[in-house]
Amino acid sequence: MTETAPSRARRVLPDPQSLTSSQKLMVFVLSMTLFGLANIFTEVIPEFKLGPVELSVAYLAFVPVVMVCLFHPLYAALGAPLGEIVFVDLLMGDFSGIGEVEGYLQLSLGLYVGGSLVRDPRRRWQVATAAIVAVLIDKGVGGIIDMSKVVVGVEDAEYVEGLPESVLVIEGFAFASDLLITGVLFGAIPAAYLARRLHGKIEPLMGMAPRDAEHPVPGRARQTAAFVSLAVFLMLASGVFAFLEAADVKFGVWEPGFIDRYGLGFLWVSVAVCAVVLIGVVVSAKALRRRARSED
């Protein structure tokens, strides 16, 4: 043993604000477990359907929203939808295949953007906004994709009298009710209430420093090019998966005439949706960066 080394080695480990890999894992696992549990409820709560009018709790949005507000938004956002897949879809045998990937990406993106908007989880309006933004992105992208799915996917949409209109009305209503029930009643209101109560209490239990305005969590990196490119990627991936599932495209072999029949038009729908959302994200990111700069 070399006793020449100073026996009193001193070492200060990095800034507690930066997360170690195990802390990221902790956030991920916590978010996954809690949202998984929450989804078991929504799985057994029956939906109220009256003709085309449907009132249902899509998911308990407040659970993952609280997680992305209090912790590192990226890891919490990645963990939560996995909880749904694991606890409900796989364990209960309710796995819908490729569509799950679409759902996973939409919800992750929504949560991540929502969580990144929050600067101080104690401020109710910030948390409430995060919840609404998360559901808006998830359900908005999902709704638009669903709509185009039926319009394009049911081979003869224009052939059936009144179908496109009905789908528009139904999807529009579903979107509104999702936004109200999932986004506000089970999203914004409880999240704002819980985030404030949990702030400063739950972090020490996991050996982390609480997130507040002076100590923004790194990885809330909405200003960076990396985030924008991630958003682009998620958007495109989400659109691609959605259409793979939806549009009966399936390799053309079985229905060689499909491009003739629809034209390439419906593919453009997905690109258009992605583009619109993407532009929105970029514009808001820029605006936020300006604001952040002016505050500095």
């Binding site: 902790m26 809690l34 549990l37 308990l60 239990l205 996991m206």
Partner: peptide
Amino acid sequence: TLVRSFYPMMLNTAKRTRTTVE
């Protein structure tokens, strides 16, 4: 009640997760 019940649940699960990840 559901929402309120998540408050202790989140705290307890956080504590549990710490040991699990360690």
